[in-house]
Nucleic acid binder design. Structure first.
Lengths: 192, 192
DNA sequence: CGCATACCATACGCGAAAGTATGGTATCGT
DNA sequence: ACGATACCATACTTTCGCGTATGGTATGCG
């Protein structure tokens, strides 16, 4: 039973390391995830790390899976709870447009799609979200053929925007411009 | 005068290294660009490399700038040569949809947006292309506000699709499905 | 003919980060 | 009270890829 009151003091748990790893990834990218650096940031040394994890890859894997589990749930469930199908897509666009932290991690992982451990996670997440969009578009009245393509287009636009906005600094929009952009995408991509 | 008949044989030129670097980047990503590996692939050793380039970064920089110079020119110039502005956007979509090699490099660089040398190059390229799209949309009749947002949306969709298709293997479309997708994006994103 | 230049091979130095070995301290259960 | 367990520090070894040093060969030029 690993239930030994970790709230007590000073001691770090496995989850603490995973959270810290995600934090570091969000800020400095996957490439910057080094064990000595992370340990320093947590005020400890490697000795601590290698007690919790067998290897560096293990930490990355754990952090990614953690993000994959807890990163989506909320929004998608809230959207599915909306009774009127016609209202789901607009609400989804709005909600997504307000997140930040989640997008930071997502953008950081997109930049690191090179990494063999990151790629499959992103593939799964993207597949699920595209499926979700597909369903939403069908419910909004599009045909099967239209819905799947529109879902791909929409999600591609989302992914691409993260790159352009966060990583590349293109479209460095202020709040007003950003709102206008979101409005434009909704008008363009959501069937009336 | 660096004109010493390099055609002779066996000897490599600076451009040969740059091309080989781009080839390797297209296939295995920026992270795999190591000098010893590249040298092996060219049938020589490091000794040769460090005669042509002072450092590994220098090669990457040269390869990136080379790609930046020669990668775009063709298509954009061809599009601008089209007399009727209304026809430019459809033609652009079609032409882009047929490229391959260019997209492979572009996708590989997108995966490596982490890298400090890659990022500014991609930022410049993306900015120019977005500007180009913006102009095209204006000529197609959109208002200034609409054109800029539609340009962002279109280019974001392009970037995102490369990620989903090439890197993540989502939307693993065959030719027929791909054509249908392109057609859908044109109908959705190009003003009638 | 012979030297200079261009191109390449071989062998080594070196720094950064991963992983290992080992020992120290605090806390908890009994 | 005391031993076991959980957590962490320190010092070390290993690996990998960059860069350097230096010497070898071929080709064009005077």
């Amino acid at each position: 039973m690993k239930q030994h009151h970790k709230l007590a003091r000073g001691h770090l748990s496995t989850e603490d390391w995973e959270e810290a790893a995600l934090e570091l990834i969000a800020n400095q990218g996957v490439g910057a995830l080094a064990v000595e650096a992370l340990a320093r940031q947590l005020g400890v040394t490697k000795g601590s790390f290698y007690w919790h994890f067998s290897t560096r890859q293990a930490l990355l894997q754990a952090a990614l899976e953690r993000w994959e589990r807890y990163g989506e749930r909320e929004i998608l469930e809230q959207i599915e709870a909306i009774p009127c199908p016609q209202q789901r897509l607009p609400e989804l666009f709005h909600r997504v447009a307000q997140e930040l932290r989640t997008h930071q991690v997502y953008a950081a992982l997109l930049k690191a799609l090179d990494h063999p451990q990151v790629m499959p996670v992103m593939a799964r997440v993207s597949q699920r979200r595209t499926d979700f969009l597909n369903k939403a578009y069908r419910e909004a009245g599009l045909s099967a053929a239209e819905a799947i393509n529109r879902a791909r287009l929409t999600y591609a636009a989302y992914v691409g925007f993260l790159q352009l906005h966060f990583t590349l600094g293109i479209a460095h929009l202020n709040q007003k411009e950003f709102d206008a952009y979101v409005e434009h995408t909704m008008v363009t991509l959501i069937p009336s």
